[in-house]
Protein backbone atom coordinates (compact mmCIF):
# COMPACT_ATOMS: atom_id res chain seq x y z
CA UNK A 1 0.00 0.00 0.00
CA UNK A 2 2.87 2.40 0.79
CA UNK A 3 4.42 1.77 -2.63
CA UNK A 4 1.11 2.36 -4.40
CA UNK A 5 0.46 5.49 -2.33
CA UNK A 6 3.74 7.01 -3.53
CA UNK A 7 3.28 6.09 -7.18
CA UNK A 8 2.56 8.81 -9.74
CA UNK A 9 -0.94 8.35 -11.15
CA UNK A 10 0.23 8.21 -14.75
CA UNK A 11 3.01 5.73 -14.02
CA UNK A 12 0.59 3.51 -12.15
CA UNK A 13 -1.94 3.59 -14.99
CA UNK A 14 0.75 2.81 -17.55
CA UNK A 15 2.10 -0.15 -15.57
CA UNK A 16 -1.42 -1.48 -15.05
CA UNK A 17 -2.19 -1.19 -18.75
CA UNK A 18 0.77 -3.47 -19.49
CA UNK A 19 -0.07 -5.91 -16.65
CA UNK A 20 -2.58 -8.79 -16.68
CA UNK A 21 -6.07 -7.27 -16.63
CA UNK A 22 -7.65 -6.80 -13.22
CA UNK A 23 -10.95 -8.55 -12.48
CA UNK A 24 -14.00 -6.29 -12.41
CA UNK A 25 -14.59 -4.36 -9.20
CA UNK A 26 -17.36 -2.22 -7.75
CA UNK A 27 -16.93 0.95 -5.74
CA UNK A 28 -17.69 0.61 -2.07
CA UNK A 29 -16.70 4.08 -0.89
CA UNK A 30 -15.26 6.87 -2.96
CA UNK A 31 -12.95 7.55 -4.69
CA UNK A 32 -13.16 10.80 -2.75
CA UNK A 33 -10.89 13.63 -1.71
CA UNK A 34 -10.59 14.91 1.83
CA UNK A 35 -8.04 16.01 4.38
CA UNK A 36 -5.76 14.48 6.94
CA UNK A 37 -4.40 16.65 9.73
CA UNK A 38 -0.62 16.44 9.69
CA UNK A 39 0.99 16.47 13.11
CA UNK A 40 4.39 17.18 14.51
CA UNK A 41 5.84 16.85 17.99
CA UNK A 42 7.04 19.75 20.13
CA UNK A 43 10.83 19.68 19.98
CA UNK A 44 10.57 16.79 17.52
CA UNK A 45 10.04 14.28 20.32
CA UNK A 46 7.50 15.81 22.72
CA UNK A 47 3.74 16.24 22.73
CA UNK A 48 1.87 16.13 19.42
CA UNK A 49 0.57 19.32 17.80
CA UNK A 50 -1.37 20.02 14.62
CA UNK A 51 0.89 21.24 11.83
CA UNK A 52 -1.75 21.79 9.16
CA UNK A 53 -3.81 19.66 6.84
CA UNK A 54 -2.93 17.76 3.67
CA UNK A 55 -5.23 16.66 0.89
CA UNK A 56 -5.79 12.94 0.62
CA UNK A 57 -7.64 10.69 -1.83
CA UNK A 58 -9.14 7.43 -0.67
CA UNK A 59 -11.13 4.61 -2.15
CA UNK A 60 -12.52 1.23 -1.18
CA UNK A 61 -13.70 -1.33 -3.72
CA UNK A 62 -14.99 -4.88 -3.68
CA UNK A 63 -13.61 -7.44 -6.09
CA UNK A 64 -14.82 -11.03 -6.01
CA UNK A 65 -15.71 -10.75 -2.33
CA UNK A 66 -12.42 -9.11 -1.35
CA UNK A 67 -12.22 -5.51 -0.20
CA UNK A 68 -9.38 -3.35 -1.43
CA UNK A 69 -8.43 -0.07 0.21
CA UNK A 70 -6.29 2.86 -0.86
CA UNK A 71 -5.25 6.10 0.82
CA UNK A 72 -2.79 8.49 -0.81
CA UNK A 73 -1.74 12.12 -0.35
CA UNK A 74 -3.06 14.46 -3.02
CA UNK A 75 -6.30 14.41 -4.96
CA UNK A 76 -5.65 11.83 -7.68
CA UNK A 77 -8.97 9.98 -7.47
CA UNK A 78 -8.21 7.74 -10.44
CA UNK A 79 -4.96 6.58 -8.87
CA UNK A 80 -6.78 5.96 -5.58
CA UNK A 81 -9.36 3.78 -7.29
CA UNK A 82 -6.74 1.82 -9.26
CA UNK A 83 -4.72 1.34 -6.08
CA UNK A 84 -7.77 0.05 -4.20
CA UNK A 85 -8.51 -2.37 -7.05
CA UNK A 86 -4.89 -3.52 -7.01
CA UNK A 87 -5.01 -3.92 -3.25
CA UNK A 88 -8.01 -6.23 -3.68
CA UNK A 89 -6.42 -8.16 -6.53
CA UNK A 90 -3.15 -8.60 -4.61
CA UNK A 91 -5.07 -10.45 -1.90
CA UNK A 92 -5.81 -13.14 -4.47
CA UNK A 93 -2.94 -15.67 -4.35
CA UNK A 94 -3.40 -16.57 -8.02
CA UNK A 95 -3.15 -12.97 -9.23
CA UNK A 96 -0.51 -11.71 -6.85
CA UNK A 97 2.77 -12.95 -8.40
CA UNK A 98 2.09 -11.49 -11.85
CA UNK A 99 0.85 -8.16 -10.46
CA UNK A 100 3.74 -7.92 -8.00
CA UNK A 101 6.17 -8.38 -10.87
CA UNK A 102 4.41 -6.11 -13.35
CA UNK A 103 3.38 -3.23 -11.09
CA UNK A 104 4.67 -3.28 -7.53
CA UNK A 105 8.28 -4.30 -8.18
CA UNK A 106 8.98 -1.61 -10.81
CA UNK A 107 7.33 1.06 -8.65
CA UNK A 108 9.29 0.02 -5.57
CA UNK A 109 12.53 -0.02 -7.56
CA UNK A 110 11.90 3.46 -9.00
CA UNK A 111 11.10 4.81 -5.54
CA UNK A 112 14.19 3.20 -4.05
CA UNK A 113 16.36 4.66 -6.83
CA UNK A 114 14.90 8.15 -6.35
CA UNK A 115 15.60 8.01 -2.61
CA UNK A 116 19.12 6.77 -3.19
CA UNK A 117 19.77 9.59 -5.65
CA UNK A 118 18.56 12.21 -3.16
CA UNK A 119 20.80 10.65 -0.50
CA UNK A 120 23.80 10.75 -2.87
CA UNK A 121 23.15 14.40 -3.76
CA UNK A 122 22.93 15.23 -0.06
CA UNK A 123 26.16 13.31 0.59
CA UNK A 124 27.91 15.39 -2.09
CA UNK A 125 27.04 18.56 -0.15
CA UNK A 126 28.34 17.23 3.16
CA UNK A 127 31.11 19.43 4.53
CA UNK A 128 34.47 17.70 5.09
CA UNK A 129 36.27 19.83 7.68
CA UNK A 130 40.03 19.81 7.76
CA UNK A 131 42.04 21.36 10.56
CA UNK A 132 44.82 23.79 9.74
CA UNK A 133 48.01 23.02 11.65
CA UNK A 134 48.67 26.74 12.15
CA UNK A 135 45.48 27.09 14.13
CA UNK A 136 46.84 25.09 17.01
Amino acid sequence: MATLARAEGETLAALLAAAPALPAWTRLRGPEAGLVMLRGRAGGDGAAFNLGEATVARCAVTMAGRIGHAWRLGRDLRAAELSAALDAALQDETLRPALEAAVIAPLAEAQRAARARTARRAAATEVRFFTLAAMR
Binding site: T26, R27, L28, R29, G30, E32, T62, I67
Partner: peptide, 9 residues
Protein backbone atom coordinates in the same frame (compact mmCIF):
# COMPACT_ATOMS: atom_id res chain seq x y z
CA UNK B 1 -19.88 -4.87 2.85
CA UNK B 2 -22.38 -2.84 0.82
CA UNK B 3 -21.95 0.62 -0.66
CA UNK B 4 -23.80 3.60 0.83
CA UNK B 5 -25.28 6.48 -1.18
CA UNK B 6 -25.22 5.73 -4.91
CA UNK B 7 -24.05 9.29 -5.53
CA UNK B 8 -22.29 10.32 -2.32
CA UNK B 9 -22.30 14.06 -2.98
Amino acid sequence: MRAAFADPV
